[in-house]
């Protein structure tokens, strides 16, 4: 299935689009997506440690705008978001 991860804040540096797209098996969790993103950093950004740290400290949100845990199973065609550490105001 196709999973789209919307990028926000510092994670926007991972793509010139505002999202990442992964084609994965069915029944994928946030933990799996996180692994995919870390793999992408290894391949595309020579394992940039700063990017990896951001991903490891990021939360993820469901299409219903709820922060979800790593064992959250992503529904088919669900668009999720990555929420790096925040600091507005």
């Amino acid at each position: 299935m196709k999973v789209i991860v919307e990028l926000y804040g510092a994670t926007k540096d991972l793509s010139d689009k505002n999202f990442l797209e992964f084609k994965l098996k069915n029944k994928v969790s946030i933990k799996d997506i996180k692994k995919e993103i870390l793999n992408l950093i290894d391949k595309k950004f020579k394992g940039n440690q700063n990017y990896k740290k951001i991903i490891n400290n990021s939360a993820f949100c469901s299409s219903k705008d709820n922060i979800v845990k790593e064992n959250y199973i992503i529904s088919k065609n669900e668009v999720i978001g990555i929420i790096p550490p925040i600091g507005g105001g």
Binding site: G9, A10, D13, N57, S58, A59, I67, V68, K69, I83, P84, P85, I86, G87
Partner: peptide, 10 residues
């Protein structure tokens, strides 16, 4: 530079 912030991770 993107500024560091507070993690919302559960």
């Amino acid at each position: 530079l993107w500024l560091k912030g507070i993690s919302l991770k559960k």
